[in-house]
Write a protein that binds this DNA or RNA. Structure first.
Length: 195
DNA sequence: CATGGGATTGACT
DNA sequence: GTCAATCCCATGC
């Protein structure tokens, strides 16, 4: 057990469902996450320590923010002890505060289009690469854990990756209309296979 | 220093 | 369902 991965980051990814991400006057409840760990090739840190992955190897509770496809910023929470690289990708939020500001930043009106994807939510909350490494307890970007009963969580495969595609490391709120595009696809394929 | 590859999104067929 | 936009970073000469 000590020589193989224990699965801690998946527990964190699950625990973060229902948590609140806040930046300034904007905030939302996490409805979708994915886990990444240095032991599997889809994780940026799989290649080892580089300037880019340094945050991933640092202490837990910090933000790892990177640019995807030259266009979008992605928000992660570092999730394993100092020296072990792992993070939880925040993939979708249910908007709760600062909705008008989110609409202005996104150029969209419908609530479902504000934070239903990892690139969308960073745009809606005004999160960028400058927030890489910030302490998520101290801010300016914060994540506060949920207080209520645990929501009904669906486990599925991660989206948009080309390696380790079979790991069931994606977590989302069952039936939420605020999950990302891939969530709808999974729901469709599930109902199709259930026929 | 040049090159290639993305943890995506939005518009279009 | 398909496809381009666009930039940071890792790698190789």
């Amino acid at each position: 057990m000590s020589d193989s991965y224990s699965g801690e980051v998946c527990a964190v990814a699950r625990a973060l469902i229902g948590a609140v991400v806040r930046h300034g006057e904007t905030a939302g409840v996490i409805v979708e996450t994915e886990a990444y760990h240095e032991s599997e090739p889809a994780c940026h840190a799989h290649i080892g320590r580089t300037p880019r992955t340094l945050t991933l190897f640092g202490p837990p509770g910090r933000a790892y923010v990177y640019r995807s496809y030259g266009v979008h910023a992605m928000l992660n929470a570092v999730a394993e002890p100092d020296g072990i690289a792992a993070a939880v990708l925040i993939r979708a939020l249910q908007p709760c505060d600062g909705i008008e500001l989110m609409r202005a930043r996104r150029g969209r009106e419908r609530l479902e289009e504000l934070c239903s994807g990892p690139g969308k939510l960073t745009q809606a909350l005004g999160i960028g690469l400058v927030h890489n490494g910030v302490d998520l307890d101290a801010g300016p970007v914060t994540i506060s854990l949920p207080g209520g009963p645990p929501p009904d969580i669906v486990v599925s495969r991660r989206i948009g990756i080309t390696k380790a595609v079979d790991l069931p490391w994606r977590f989302s709120v069952r039936g939420s209309r605020f999950v990302s595009r891939g969530g709808a696809r999974v729901a469709a394929s599930v109902s199709r296979s259930a026929r």
